[in-house]
Design a protein around this nucleic acid. Structure first.
Lengths: 205, 205
DNA sequence: GCTTTTCCTTAACCCAAATCAATAAAACAT
DNA sequence: ATGTTTTATTGATTTGGGTTAAGGAAAAGC
């Protein structure tokens, strides 16, 4: 099967750190997966729809965001070799308050809600994996909002620059601004201030 | 045993909505629990320590907060019949960035990290419970930060007033302010503005 | 190549909330 | 009850980011 290599990737990156499933369990899991491609600018999930899949990204880049009085508030970016989902909508079976849109041509391997419940029933060990995934998601979310509370916009931007340089490369600055919770103008000013500082500092030596 | 009633409460409120454990599994779980009381003003968890327990609150009230340049940033309040933990520290076995402090005399029933892992090993169904708990925590966190992004300080305050009136009763206003991410002065002004509005509105009829 | 659209920057002005400071009101203790 | 500490309010001032608007740079389209 052509997709075999994709699934192998998934197995390695997604579950590599997790307790391994038996070959049989893995087969069951694999049988529940499907592949989807999303063109740049298209939606993986539309606001108001129930999120019905957990998607593992083979390649591409997506954003998850709220739309509040006409303006986007980007919550997160998802790139290849991570999973992507409005987990709140997915788990609660409620309409999503967010939308997920592809910023680049994207390919995902996904499992749908029924498939996952099926898996939990058929393969009890999968509960442990599900637990770890939920735990990791929660921890990430905690770190994230901890950052938002603790740090200034300025240092949040610095963190993006140093910790996720790929983001700067791959998305326009106004989306970074939205992600940081400020306007593009404000981010532009912050950058200007910083580069001025650097020049001054450099000039002193 | 004197604590029996306490554990019954826990069983009802904490696991009531969750798939029930068998009597035997429950016995194992129960054997791993212990009781602790925290005096008003004392810590359930100190910043920098690894959070070693998930605590179910029998009675009392706690706050979880960051301390950033001398000022508290309150993340959440926990009252009786909910669970309380710095889950990020607990799961990652990392020093907590938060502290948890009792705002009232508090009694908790808790399970420690080793106990919980032990439980997961002995009672595989517990993984499902752990999964559901992590999922719920994550969803709560999502809702919360969604709120923070989407809504104005004003409407966040209104939400606290209408949705968690007990908070207003039980904690001083400056902590509500911290929870909302503003200064006590700012909250005082919001209240003043609102009551003025109400008076004006009332006078018009 | 040139045009068009999209994105970024800069400036002037405005506003909500922070800060600083002083006072008032509650809560607590003896 | 009275003094002490803690909490809440109000005012004056500052500030960081929002808003509006305009011009420049870079990408995308043809």
């Amino acid at each position: 099967m052509e997709h075999q290599a994709k699934y192998q990737e998934l197995k390695t990156y997604y579950f590599g750190v997790l307790p391994t499933l038996t070959e049989d369990s893995w087969k069951i899991f694999e049988s529940l997966l499907s592949i989807r491609t999303i063109k740049k600018g298209d939606y993986l999930l539309r606001e108001g729809k129930i999120c019905n899949h957990v998607s593992f990204i083979n390649h591409g880049l997506l954003k998850i965001y709220y739309e509040v009085d006409g303006k986007e508030k980007i919550v997160a970016f998802f790139k290849e070799l991570t999973y992507c989902c409005d987990y709140a909508s997915f788990l609660m079976r409620e309409p999503a308050e967010t939308a997920i849109k592809a910023l680049e041509e994207t390919e995902v391997v996904e499992i749908n809600y029924e498939g996952l419940q099926h898996l939990y029933n058929l393969v009890p060990e999968a509960n442990m994996i599900g637990r770890r995934i939920a735990e990791n998601l929660f921890i990430d979310k905690c770190r994230n909002s901890s950052n938002n509370v603790t740090e200034s916009v300025e240092s949040k931007y610095q963190k993006v620059v140093t910790e996720t340089p790929w983001l700067i490369q791959r998305v326009p600055q106004y989306m970074i601004a939205s992600y940081l919770g400020i306007t593009p103008e404000a981010l532009s000013r912050i950058k200007a201030r910083n580069s001025k500082k650097t020049v001054v500092t450099a000039a002193q030596y």
